[in-house]
Structure formats: structure tokens, C-alpha cells
Amino acid sequence: MHGEYKIPGGKLVVVDLDVEGGALRNVRVAGDFFLEPDEAILDIDAALEGAPAHADAATLAARITAALPPAAVLLGLSPEGVAVAVRRALTRATEWSAHRWQLIHDRPQSPALHMALDEVITAEVAAGRRPPTLRVWEWAAPAVIIGSFQSLRNEVDPEGAEHHGVTVVRRISGGGAMFVEPQSTITYSLSVPESLVSGLSYADSYAYLDDWVLGALADMGIKAWYQPLNDIATEAGKIAGAAQKRIAGGGVLHHVTMAYDIDADKMTDVLRIGREKLSDKGIGSAKKRVDPLARQTGLRREEVIERMIGSFRGRYGLADGGVTEEEMARARELAAAKFATPEWTARVP
């Protein structure tokens, strides 16, 4: 069995192993990390040898930690990262490069239709009828997208939304509210098979699926990092928020909204961002929490998107595609029956 895991902010860990009698055998750990002393790699292998094949990542990491010499130095490597690579080997996880990725970057769509497209496309990927897909959104109208479990009245000021012509929709994933305007926001979705994140905890899967965009931002001169649980941040502030949904049939939806040139005054007119929400960020004002990409890159929105797509294509390959007629028909039906209805939007009043 073979497993790989790119540690967020670190290096690639590769594990090859067999399973005999319910235990790990012939374990070999490799990768492009740094480790001192050299012999410590043998200690890691030995710690995993004979471990129960059903052991979870925390148990495996504890075995590795206990086996390492006190003076061991790990750079770009961690016991937890090795443990995840082991679990990915055992669950026969797939790697990014094993898939034929498709890009969807179509004309602007309504907020409700975007919600529906996410659900339909992810279901198609789960069913094996379409390849894993990167979809870059274009917005036809300003919107607030609230999380699946958020209270509508607690998150949105209806007078502010009406005044600014903002449509309110609810998505199928959890997390917090997002304020978007067509030319001030960059939004994308990854619709992937569950095998891509097999062996990862929910928390680890966020960092894993965001890693490519951190590389794309670095290519644009932005040092960004994953900030648990679901933010992408820089020294200047938050630039993006992610959310995920696992759907029946084995599909994973991971979507991200990035602030390109956000109107902070308008955002605080529409969103009710309470003190408790900001307190865990160590920030006293919502306006100071987000620092847009326009200022940090000096690039046009279209160029930022183009560079992001180019970075993904360079890493994993990416064929141009589009929403099929059947997918669009199903999405329109779903938008009308669910995402554009008051019953869904206010399902948590």
C-alpha cells in the first residue's frame, strides 16, 4: 500500500507498507523533508512496524513521538503528518495527480443558481459521471451567503440588505456568512471524490484542499497560510474563508470566497458581525479583519483568477470544460425549488 501527504506548510511524506495479520509490516517512510539525525528515519519505521492496521492517526503519531530520540530535529515533517500518510495508504486514498481535473469558468449566474450548481456538480463527481472539478464563480448580483446552520435574523440586517440590493441565500455547507459583490470577490469550488481526502480528519482536509491556492498566492508575492479551522490569512489580515460539505454517494464540496476589493462599510451594513465573533480573532472591528487581494497584489481581479487557474493547471493538469445541459437543467430546478425559496433561506430563522 502506498500513501502520500503534503503537510500544510511543510513537505511531502510518502509511506509504503504491507498489512499482514492485521498489523503494519515492511513500513518505509520517505519524502523531501529534513530530519536529524539520519538514523531517526529508522526509528520512525520501527515505531510503525507491527502497529494495528486499525490504529487511528493520533495513536500512530504517539508511537512515532515516543520512538524519536530526544535530540531529533524535524523540519517540514511531523509525527502527525507521517500518521496521516499511513492512514491514507491504508484507506487507499487517491492523489491530486491521479485525477483528470476539469475547469468550469462560465458566465455570471444568480446566487441561488450558484448554490444549486455546487450541489449538482458535486453529486455528479460522486457518481463518477464527471471528473473532479474546479469551478470558478462569476456573480450576477451582490449577495450574502449564510452557512447551513446560521440564524438568518442573527446574521443579516434585512434593511441593509434591501438598501444595497443584496440577495440573501443559504448554502448547504456550514460555516459563517460571506458578503460578495461581483467585481470585489473571487469564489471557487472544488468538487472531488471522497478518496482524495481519505485518511484525513475533517480539519486536516481543509488545509489539504487549500494548499494549492496558498502556492498560487505565493507566486503572486503573498505569504499566506491556512488558519484553523477554515480561514486563509496573511500578516495583513484574513483574505478568504472556506466551507465544506460531504454528500451522500462519496462526494466532497470545498468552496472558498476570497476578498478581492471588499467594501467594508457596505459589508457591516448588511452583516451583523457580533463582538463574540470578532473576539476569538483578537480584532475589535470587522473592517479591520479583512485585507483585500487588490491591495496586496496590485493586480486586476481577472489577472488574479488567471494566475490561480494557471497555478492549479501547472500542478495537477486542468482541462477546460463547462456545465452540461443536463446539469444546468437540474441546477435550475433545484434553485427554484430550494435555494431561492424563503423556506430554505429562513430554515433557521
Rank of each mutant, 00 (worst) to 15 (best):
M1A: 10
I7V: 15
P8F: 03
P8H: 00
G9I: 01
G10Y: 00
V13Y: 02
V14G: 09
V14Q: 14
V15H: 06
V15I: 09
G22S: 06
A23V: 15
R25E: 12
G31N: 07
F33T: 00
F33V: 02
F34Q: 11
P37S: 03
E39K: 14
A40G: 10
A40T: 14
L42Q: 12
A47C: 03
G50D: 06
A51S: 12
A55P: 03
D56H: 05
D56A: 09
T59L: 08
A62H: 09
A62Y: 08
I64Y: 03
I64F: 06
I64V: 11
A66L: 10
A67F: 00
L68C: 00
P69A: 00
P69V: 04
A71W: 12
A71S: 15
A72K: 06
L74D: 07
G76Y: 01
L77E: 05
S78Q: 01
G81F: 01
V84I: 08
A85P: 05
A93R: 07
R107T: 14
R107S: 13
L113Y: 01
L117G: 01
I121Y: 12
T122R: 04
A123K: 13
V125R: 06
P131F: 00
W139E: 14
P142W: 13
P142H: 13
P142L: 11
I145R: 10
I146S: 02
G147Y: 08
L152M: 09
L152Y: 14
P158H: 02
E159Q: 14
A161R: 10
H163R: 15
G165W: 07
V169Q: 04
S173Y: 05
A177V: 02
M178E: 11
V180H: 10
V180D: 06
S191H: 10
V197P: 04
S201L: 01
A207M: 00
A207P: 00
Y208F: 15
L209I: 00
D211M: 04
W212S: 03
L214T: 05
A216L: 02
L217V: 07
L217G: 08
D219P: 02
M220L: 11
I222H: 10
W225S: 12
Y226F: 15
P228D: 12
A233K: 14
G237N: 07
I239N: 05
A243D: 10
Q244C: 03
K245L: 12
G249P: 04
G250K: 08
H254E: 02
V256P: 05
Y260M: 04
I262M: 15
I262S: 11
D263V: 03
D263N: 09
A264P: 06
I273G: 01
S279H: 11
D280L: 13
K281W: 13
K281C: 01
G284T: 14
V290I: 15
P292A: 06
P292W: 03
L299K: 09
I305K: 11
R307V: 11
I309W: 06
I309A: 05
G310H: 02
G310T: 10
S311R: 13
G314V: 01
L318Q: 01
G322T: 11
V323G: 02
T324F: 05
A331I: 05
R332H: 08
L334F: 07
L334P: 13
A336C: 05
T345S: 08
V348C: 11
V348D: 07
